[in-house]
Each structure stands twice: as structure tokens, then as C-alpha cells.
Design a protein around this nucleic acid. Structure first.
Lengths: 163, 163
DNA sequence: TTGCTCCTCACGTCACGTGAGGTGGC
DNA sequence: TTGCTCCTCACGTCACGTGAGGTGGC
């Protein structure tokens, strides 16, 4: 996955799974589907080893999946775009060409902006849901107070919009 | 589903599905799993008909599923608890007993509070994710400006924490 | 050498998707 | 009567879960 020798292969699949709160099966499945391991061809049967950058990358994908409910197909799309950033493959560190670096940053920025838009949209939906629940709760507590005060007419006035 | 004659049976499954943005299969599946149709025994082969209260109820379940990523098992649990509210079955409207109404409200309040806790927790997670994306973006734009100004030393100072 | 974790099939499951073939109401 | 939507199987799919049986490194 990482071709960068200095960061290569320090974590085993079980450690990564524990860190991210998923199972090893999930990680292997993501590899099957092409989200990981674009770099090294691992000899069949040998252990998978992950670099810190790989873990961070997986972390991001899993967070997008959990928080936004994206399908693996969506994740593949985002991952491929992120691939273009190439930071993970060391293109950034291996070049001293400012124009090359400019291109990398220019590719990366719209991607993060897209993720931010997705997150912001989801935040708004949740905020209105939250508001709804709050006013529902407020109403119910008011009805409760009316009942406690044996004020039947007040209860009747409110009950229509309750529940 | 609804045994309340005045609100019974005005929507067909296709209409409900369109309103909620799901397929008819989803609604039938939820019925299979016991989330719906606790009331009427429909003659086999006959059309399903839903009341407005049924649609609202389904809407809530689907929103919880989408926004919080709850499993159907989780939804069944919440639905069963909500069943206790009994408003949908007309217990509220069919009683004039204040103590009965008090019991209904007392059962309903902690349920909505629980939903609110789930939503709030999700909001916090999303907020920190959003913050992370924002500062990442800010840093990348700064690097871009440094590159544009051909200020190589400034770029180098920042690149370590980039990507 | 003994555990432990890893490996690869491969079948099971959850939450639906997607027809196949047929019936029912405006 | 003609469409349209509905019905019930029932098999397919996506994203994994869960062993079965075996190998590899501290």
C-alpha cells in the first residue's frame, strides 16, 4: 500500500482494526473492493502490513461511511480523487518543483471542500431534526404540567398537536 | 396498522413510499420485521392502506435510520418503546382519565429525550469532523499562497503537517 | 515448542433490489 | 376493457459476520 520505505509496514491488520473500531474482515473487504493496497503487491499468504499514512487514510474513509452513510462505491470515488492528491505516495515529499506542488494542492483543495459540503449539509439536517425533538419535548412537558395542575381545558387545547 | 376509523386507510403503499423517499420493498420489509402493522390483520392478498399517523411514524423511523445509522433491530427497540406511548392507537384520545394521560406522557418523555441524546451526540461528532476539515482546508490554502509567492521556506515549514 | 495472530476460502446474514407471474380497483 | 398499482414468492446483492482449516513470526 505504501511504497514509502521510511513509513512502511509497522502495523498489523488486527492492530489497525482495533484502532479504527472495525473488524479485520472489513479491512480485507475494502481491499477486495479496491480501496486499499494500490501500491505494493503482497505475496499471497503473507501478512498485511500498514503504515501510519494507511491508517489515517482508512480512518477518514470509515468516518465518511459512518457519519454520512456513504456506500463503498461513493467511498471508492472519493478515494480515487484523493489518490490524485498523491501525498500518500510521497509525490509531495519527493519533489522540489514548486509548480508540481501547486498542482498537488490545487487538486487537493476542491476535494476537501466537497467533503466539507457533505458534512455541512448533514449538520443542517441534524440541526432541524434536533430542533423538532426539542419543541416536541417542550410541548410534552407543558402538557405534563397542565395535567399535574388538573387544568383539563389547557390539556385539551394542546393535545391535538401532541404525540 | 391503524385501528382508528377516522384516520384509517387513505394512503396506498406507493404513495407512502414516494412521500418518504423509499421503495415499497422497504416498507414491506419493515412490516415483515414487525415495525408496522401491529393493529389490523389484513386479508392475504389485499392492498395495504396507511393512515397519516402511520406515515408520520414511518417517517420518524426512516429519519433515525438515515441520520443516526441505526439498525432495524435498534429501530424495533425504539418503535416498541414508542408503542408504549400508545398515542397512535388512540389511547390518548379515547381516555378522559387524567391519571392515564399522565402515565402516557411520563412514558413518552424519556423516549424523546433518548432520541435527542442520540442526535446531540451525533451532532458533536460531526462538529469536530467539520472543524478538522476546516483547519485542514485553511492550511492548504495558506500553502497555496506561499507557493504563489514563491516563498519556499514558508512552504517547507508547513508541509510537514499538510495532507 | 507453544500461543497468538495471521492467511484464504466459503457460506451466512442483514437490509433491502429486482424481476416473475398474477390479481384488484378507479 | 385497458392501464395502473397492487400482491406474493423468490432469487440477487451489498457490506460485511463467522467459522473451518491451515500457516507464520515473536
Amino acid at each position: 500500500m505504501s511504497s514509502n520505505t521510511e513509513t512502511a509496514g509497522r502495523f498489523r491488520i488486527g492492530e489497525v482494526a482495533d484502532q479504527l473500531g472495525v473488524t479485520t474482515r472489513t479491512i480485507r473487504y475494502y481491499e477486495e473492493r479496491g480501496l486499499l493496497n494500490h501500491g505494493t503487491k503482497r505475496p499471497k499468504g503473507s501478512h498485511r502490513l500498514y503504515a501510519q499514512t494507511d491508517v489515517v487514510r482508512l480512518q477518514e474513509l470509515i468516518r465518511l461511511r459512518d457519519l454520512l452513510g456513504l456506500s463503498l462505491e461513493d467511498l471508492v470515488e472519493l478515494a480515487e480523487a484523493e489518490e490524485a492528491r498523491a501525498c500518500l505516495r510521497g509525490r509531495w515529499d519527493n519533489t522540489t518543483d514548486d509548480e508540481e506542488r501547486m498542482r498537488i494542492v490545487d487538486e487537493a483543495i476542491p476535494l476537501v471542500e466537497k467533503q466539507l459540503r457533505l458534512v455541512t449539509s448533514r449538520q443542517q439536517t441534524l440541526a432541524s431534526f434536533s430542533d423538532e425533538l426539542r419543541s416536541k419535548l417542550k410541548l410534552m412537558k407543558q402538557v405534563r404540567r397542565d395535567l399535574a395542575a388538573r387544568d383539563t381545558s389547557a390539556v385539551a387545547a394542546r393535545s391535538a398537536s401532541d404525540c
